[in-house]
Design a protein around this nucleic acid. Structure first.
Lengths: 183, 183
DNA sequence: GTCACTCTATACGCACCCGTATGGACGAGG
DNA sequence: CCTCGTCCATACGGGTGCGTATAGAGTGAC
């Protein structure tokens, strides 16, 4: 057994970095190789083709961005409002992961297979949020509206570039979130 | 003066169509030419290069997606809540225009010059929404939070793919909007 | 009919990228 | 020391796209 010099995971990580920076079109094998300091020779030893890499990139995105985040929020206890705030904090805490998430969302708009994965992930997250809002909010329509507003603000705030006078973007998001948590 | 066969505007329109469908990387001159039934020969008579086309595409996007929408909402009268609803309806009414808007938002995440244009546009729309929410909502923080929620839901809802049980996405958005319009 | 103007076709050089083929390099196990 | 497994470098063919150069077509003005 020889040692592993540039394992699959390096290619996947570098691919996710490229995806975050420039979208799926920026995931070019020769560019990744340059970034890793090798040539593409080894890439085709690990992967069948570019599509296989993209697939595995989406696998790891699903795992670390969705499953692990929810697990960590659940693991630390607190009431529903505390978990809600922690969910938002955690999801925005890793800039690199966040940018991958946003890139996947745009990608999903034109690739049905990506959209199917995103649907699975978004449904998981929404289901989890419903349980949190439902803990202190009896009306079902209201729960759905609050989930929608909270989730779409989490996503949409990164796709808009407005100023808010003296307030920072984070201030306004916190303000809005507090509004959604109200009785 | 000879007649105009494939004027600048054809290239810009076709470019916007490509942008809506596949992002800025999909705006390829030879592909646009094929779509227009000509070769790229004439393109370089109208434009210096690909960048010049992208620039003019953004010009027209700014004009028709922001200025004209606000003008039309204002032109038809009604109270603040009616205008708010019309603003949402109008902005979503033209699928093609909407998809350009979303593509520009993703594009802005990696191109500072695009981000600057988007900032200008988003500030205009936010300023207008502030005036509408401010008409029936006295607290300034509350106005800002509602604007943020409304705008980011408008944007974010198109970047998420969750199901809502028996409800349709449009139902949930309407539900959420009604919540934001409440006294 | 001629001219001027507005495109349009075609061909070229360059660069980038994909996927394949092939011959290694390099260290662990025997 | 030799072999095997794990990569890596290099070269190739094919495809696509950009921007340039150049010759020409089609139409209105005169």
């Amino acid at each position: 057994m020889a040692p592993i010099r540039t394992p699959r995971s390096s290619w996947i990580d570098e691919g996710l970095r490229a995806l975050a920076g420039g979208g799926p079109d920026a995931v070019r094998i020769e560019a990744l190789a340059r970034a890793l300091g090798v040539t593409k020779g080894g890439f085709y030893w690990h992967f069948d083709d570019r599509g296989a890499l993209l697939d595995e990139m989406l696998d790891t995105w699903e795992r670390v961005s969705i499953d692990e985040v929810i697990d960590r929020v659940e693991g630390e206890g607190g009431d529903a409002r505390a978990r809600l705030r922690r969910l938002f904090a955690l999801a925005s805490s890793t800039p690199e992961l966040l940018r991958v998430d946003l890139a996947v969302r745009d990608w999903a708009r034109r690739e049905p297979t990506v959209a199917r994965r995103l649907r699975r992930g978004d449904n998981r997250r929404m289901e989890y949020m419903r349980s949190l809002f439902g803990a202190f909010c009896p009306d079902e329509d209201d729960v759905e509206a609050r989930c929608m507003l909270a989730f779409s603000m989490f996503v949409g705030s990164h796709f808009m570039v407005a100023d808010h006078g003296a307030r920072s973007r984070a201030d306004v998001v916190a303000l809005a979130l507090r509004r959604l948590e109200a009785e």
